[in-house]
Amino acid sequence: MPSATYEPELDTTRPFRIRWTRDDCARFERDGLLTPGKYELIEGDILKSMGQNRAHINTVMTFIRWLFGMFGEEFVQGPGPIDVSLEDNPTSEPEPDAVVLSKPLSAFQTRNPRPDDIRLLVEISDATRYFDRGTKANLYARAEIVEYWSLDLVQRKLHVHREPRDGKYQRVTMHGEDESIASLATPESAILVSALLPPIKAE
């Protein structure tokens, strides 16, 4: 008599997930449950901002000083919120480390910079480097932000994302600290990646 084969049923039920919105976060801030600048809203998830170490803080300031020299202080936003695509905007409000704007900061008194206001976007990455090059890169590509730089402090490499199309960056290049790179916005002004990185700690 042939034996019966038992195949267990697969549980395809997805875990329950609440997708938070900007309106939710604004209400939480009013109620004292969230502190502005201490979290990011990314694809419906409220992400607590990680404490920044000294290398991260210093690198952000180094990058911003360089951007000031290239574009002028009035066209550079430090860490702060931006808008993304119309589809993602209700559930995402990222706060990149630096943004180069096509308009002066004074133009953004009551609203965030929108994707078409952004010439270059920068994230300084250590513990979040894979998230920044994955989830965030796709979020920025869907918004058609023309150029996104992710500086990896662990591997000491700069990842340059360009040509957003169909929700992905079609051209992604990696540059070591001995290589030079220029933004699309200032192709005549290159900088060594090492000049943007913190010094290597002495053994």
Results as ranks from 00 to 15, higher is better:
residue 78 G to F: 08
residue 69 G to C: 09
residue 168 K to W: 04
residue 121 L to R: 07
residue 117 D to H: 13
residue 114 R to K: 04
residue 136 K to I: 02
residue 49 S to F: 07
residue 165 R to I: 02
residue 15 P to S: 05
residue 134 G to Y: 10
residue 76 V to I: 01
residue 198 P to S: 07
residue 50 M to H: 13
residue 98 A to G: 13
residue 178 D to V: 01
residue 88 D to M: 03
residue 109 Q to V: 13
residue 17 R to M: 06
residue 134 G to E: 11
residue 139 L to M: 05
residue 45 D to S: 07
residue 140 Y to E: 01
residue 4 A to R: 14
residue 174 M to G: 14
residue 185 A to W: 14
residue 15 P to R: 04
residue 198 P to G: 06
residue 60 V to C: 10
residue 150 S to P: 03
residue 10 L to V: 12
residue 84 V to M: 15
residue 53 N to W: 00
residue 51 G to M: 12
residue 64 I to F: 08
residue 114 R to W: 02
residue 192 L to E: 08
residue 189 S to V: 10
residue 164 P to S: 13
residue 87 E to R: 11
residue 188 E to L: 12
residue 1 M to G: 12
residue 175 H to V: 11
residue 185 A to S: 10
residue 175 H to W: 11
residue 191 I to D: 00
residue 12 T to A: 14
residue 120 L to M: 02
residue 122 V to H: 08
residue 103 K to R: 14
residue 10 L to G: 07
residue 192 L to K: 09
residue 25 C to P: 00
residue 100 V to G: 01
residue 36 P to F: 06
residue 33 L to Q: 15
residue 171 R to G: 03
residue 28 F to A: 12
residue 58 N to R: 12
residue 114 R to P: 00
residue 153 L to M: 06
residue 22 R to F: 15
residue 88 D to W: 01
residue 31 D to S: 12
residue 149 W to G: 00
residue 86 L to W: 13
residue 27 R to G: 05
residue 61 M to H: 13
residue 179 E to M: 05
residue 189 S to A: 02
residue 100 V to P: 03
residue 11 D to G: 01
residue 198 P to Y: 00
residue 4 A to M: 14
residue 124 I to Q: 00
residue 166 D to H: 06
residue 60 V to F: 08
residue 72 G to C: 06
residue 67 L to F: 06
residue 191 I to W: 04
residue 159 H to K: 05
residue 96 P to W: 03
residue 53 N to T: 10
residue 132 D to H: 09
residue 180 S to R: 09
residue 131 F to K: 15
residue 164 P to M: 02
residue 53 N to Q: 02
residue 136 K to R: 07
residue 138 N to Y: 04
residue 27 R to N: 05
residue 33 L to G: 02
residue 79 P to L: 00
residue 78 G to V: 11
residue 195 A to E: 08
residue 97 D to G: 02
residue 32 G to C: 09
residue 10 L to C: 15
residue 102 S to E: 12
residue 105 L to V: 05
residue 145 I to S: 09
residue 123 E to N: 06
residue 194 S to A: 08
residue 60 V to R: 13
residue 154 V to R: 10
residue 89 N to T: 13
residue 75 F to E: 00
residue 39 Y to C: 00
residue 69 G to M: 13
residue 200 I to W: 04
residue 136 K to F: 03
residue 4 A to E: 14
residue 122 V to E: 14
residue 150 S to W: 03
residue 139 L to N: 06
residue 126 D to Y: 10
residue 21 T to C: 05
residue 123 E to C: 04
residue 190 A to N: 00
residue 27 R to Q: 10
residue 202 A to Y: 04
residue 185 A to Y: 08
residue 180 S to T: 10
residue 167 G to Y: 09
residue 34 L to Q: 08
residue 198 P to F: 04
residue 68 F to E: 00
residue 7 E to C: 03
residue 79 P to F: 06
residue 105 L to M: 13
residue 93 E to Q: 03
residue 51 G to Q: 11
residue 201 K to M: 06
residue 61 M to A: 12
residue 24 D to I: 06
residue 91 T to P: 05
residue 152 D to T: 01
residue 201 K to H: 09
residue 187 P to Q: 09
residue 169 Y to P: 07
residue 74 E to Q: 09
residue 52 Q to H: 02
residue 173 T to Y: 05
residue 130 Y to Q: 15
residue 77 Q to W: 08
residue 177 E to P: 03
residue 61 M to Y: 15
residue 85 S to I: 14
residue 24 D to F: 08
residue 185 A to R: 05
residue 146 V to R: 07
residue 71 F to H: 06
residue 105 L to R: 07
residue 199 P to I: 05
residue 118 I to T: 02
residue 134 G to N: 07
residue 16 F to Q: 14
residue 3 S to E: 12
residue 65 R to W: 07
residue 114 R to Y: 03
